[in-house]
Write a protein that binds this DNA or RNA. Sequence first.
DNA 1: ACCTGAACACCGTTCAAGT
DNA 2: ACCTGAACACCGTTCAAGT
Lengths: 188, 188
Amino acid sequence: MPAPQRVSQEELVAAIRRIAEDDGIDAVTMSSVASAVGVRTPSLYKRVADRHGLLRLAADDAARELVAELSGAPHTEGEDAAGRLRRMAYALRAFAARAPRVSGLLFAAPSAAAAPSPEAGEPLLRPLLEAVSAAAPGDPLPAARTFTAWIYGFCTMEQAGAFRLGGDVDAAFEYGLDVLLGAMTRPA
Amino acid sequence: MPAPQRVSQEELVAAIRRIAEDDGIDAVTMSSVASAVGVRTPSLYKRVADRHGLLRLAADDAARELVAELSGAPHTEGEDAAGRLRRMAYALRAFAARAPRVSGLLFAAPSAAAAPSPEAGEPLLRPLLEAVSAAAPGDPLPAARTFTAWIYGFCTMEQAGAFRLGGDVDAAFEYGLDVLLGAMTRPA
DNA sequence: ACCTGAACACCGTTCAAGT
DNA sequence: ACCTGAACACCGTTCAAGT
């Protein structure tokens, strides 16, 4: 006798992300998620291949949300490529601050199986590469890699509490952004 | 009746690091480490408060090793601060390539309890900060944070296989290094 | 002083059985 | 078609007992 799904995808993803942000990635267990959505553990295997699948669900959802934010922001009329990159950098950092646990999954998942699926990750990388291409003369790849390495490293370290020497972290972010955008837009 | 320790600190740390690099951080369990050094699980609690303590042991050891390499390299006579930073960057990247799993612990441990202890981490950060101070005019903190964020992000992404678009990854490293050192040594 | 066996509460995962 | 109870092999951790 056919039976309809008891928990929606939205409920499931919301529960995973809530647990991740409240109690950490390690707290996202089959048990905790199952009991959060009111079901027994084995039922989750109908939705997901294994525990990493739960994390990928959260990562994909975060990627989708971030993509929506990046493309949702109004393209100011006279905005140049450097300005677009700057806006993206702010959005990425704000997202990392708002959802530190899942945003860690976006760029450096504990396992490839917990990383966003290629289909979810690609729309996140593409606009970044496009903006770098538009801003930097010549080969955009080294510039894009420098930019993403820096912003990923900065947000990760900030969220990990690695900036322990005091000082103004916002100012350090601006400094880095200025350095990178300056170098990219300066003709080689 | 007093009894001497059965496994040396060196054996213990070596086993942890070997398991971490061979099978991943998740494979560093009380059980796997205990059986690798030929002892029962509960015995490990004489050496370490909990599982994160095992990871910290590895992280501290990696930090010590890296510090030795950084300070061991011969100070070329006429070397300036930018040259010293460049050498450090090469050393960090080489270490990340050689010991990707534990080097991940160095900068972004899954938990603060698994991060290097302050005493082990400080000698790693200090020479970096000093070199940046010597190279960059003005406040060294933003410059140092930009440098460490970039190099951490680059090495992590490289080791995670995140640079999937082909191209010359070495060239991207040189590009980023040139950009950052150039900006730091240029007067503001 | 160090090590151990036994025990506890917890995991992820599988699978036959229920509806 | 989805859900479940029961079972399995595995964790981390504690602690009283051994030497």
